[in-house]
Amino acid sequence: MSTPQVTGRLHAPPGRLRPAPAAAPRRPRGAWARRAPLLPALIFMVVVTQLPFVGTLVISFMRWNALDPGDKGFTGFDNYREEFTDPQLRSALSTTVVLTVTVVLVSLALGLGLALLMDRKFLGRGVVRTLLITPFLVVPVASALLWKHALYNASYGLINGVLTWVWRLFGSHSAPQPDWLSQVPKLAVEASLIWQWTPFMMLILLAGLQSRPSDVVEAARVDGATNWQIFRYLTFPHLRRYLELAALLGTVYVVQNFDAVFTITSGGLGTANLPYAVYTTFYQAHDYGQASAEGVIVVVLSIIVATFALRTVSSLFREETL
């Protein structure tokens, strides 16, 4: 008997169909077509932002002073070591910390109070809200000039004029006329920055208040909760992420502030912060290596704070999608 030939083709029993082999996943052809228009913007961003920073980072490790062009070379971490040993630079660093913490905390507290007021319904709320955000829209240099001349000036400033008017109401013609810029220079800079950044804090916190579930608040009111209890147990926990975001973003910007210090006090009387120290080191001392090291420190501090800010924003987005 002849044995049947085994062919390479197997036939499935009737009624049973074998699944076809799965095809390898293929990348959509339109993926690169959608991303290609973004490449010029990406290249532009790298050229404009990253390459100058890399150049600054390289110069920060060099000994380079324009007043002595012959003495140029690699110096390692000497520029950074001098940052933390020079008394003036340490003072600029401490001033930056004090200025940033004071401005952020005070403007955050004021912004929270204004946001709670703007969350209530009253006649003319839109007009009041627009007026409150106006300081944030003013150019920083113009804002500093306004405070320096229109408010702080000892001869014709608004603050001393109000003091004179109040003293005359009580029958006195010897009102105090302090020179605010020389007597309280750091407070003068902080006040102008608080005036400028309070609307920014208010807008972020007001957005957080308007995202609060209203049914929970109404249920608490029905149960007899007071306004303080609603704020403590409902509003404040809900605003915690927004408070963190406002504080972090405000810190990023205030750390880099230069306009107010330069315009109001010119860095004198203990108001010089790190950005102003970079300016004086570069344009007055002409020490490019030292100025680059100071600039790198400012950028690193800003990146650290911005990293926490981005994490807070991501957590807010995750909470909104849940």
Rank of each mutant, 00 (worst) to 15 (best):
P4N: 14
L10I: 14
A12R: 14
P14I: 13
P14G: 09
P14W: 12
P19W: 10
P21L: 09
A23M: 10
P28F: 02
R29K: 12
A31S: 11
A31Q: 12
A33Q: 14
L39E: 01
P40L: 01
A41Q: 00
F44K: 05
M45N: 10
V46C: 11
Q50K: 02
I59Y: 05
F61K: 04
R63G: 00
F74I: 05
G76T: 09
R81G: 15
F84R: 03
T85W: 00
D86V: 01
P87D: 04
S91N: 13
L93K: 00
T95K: 01
V97L: 15
L105E: 02
L108W: 06
L112K: 01
L114H: 09
L116T: 03
D119T: 09
F122T: 01
L123T: 15
G124Q: 01
R125C: 02
G126F: 13
V127C: 02
T130S: 13
L132I: 06
I133N: 00
I133T: 03
V139Q: 03
P140L: 00
P140R: 02
V141A: 03
A142Q: 06
A142T: 11
L145D: 06
L151H: 08
G161R: 05
R168L: 09
G171H: 01
S172Y: 07
S174G: 05
Q177A: 13
V184W: 13
P185Q: 06
L187G: 14
V189W: 00
A191F: 13
T198D: 09
P199R: 02
F200T: 03
F200P: 06
F200V: 04
M202H: 06
A207Y: 12
Q210H: 05
S211P: 03
P213V: 06
P213F: 00
E218S: 07
V222M: 13
A225C: 07
W228F: 15
I230S: 01
I230M: 04
R232S: 07
L234A: 11
F236Q: 08
P237F: 02
H238L: 09
H238W: 15
R241A: 13
E244K: 06
E244I: 14
E244C: 12
A247N: 08
V252L: 10
V252I: 07
N257H: 08
N257V: 12
T263P: 04
I264F: 08
I264D: 12
S266F: 03
G267P: 00
G268K: 10
L269D: 11
G270H: 01
G270C: 09
P275H: 03
V278H: 02
T281H: 01
F282I: 09
Y283Q: 13
Q284D: 11
Q284I: 08
H286K: 09
A291M: 00
S292R: 07
S292K: 03
A293I: 04
G295H: 04
I297R: 05
V298I: 06
I303R: 05
I303Y: 08
I304E: 05
T312S: 12
F317H: 09
R318Y: 11
R318N: 14
E320Q: 13
T321P: 03
L322G: 09
L322N: 10
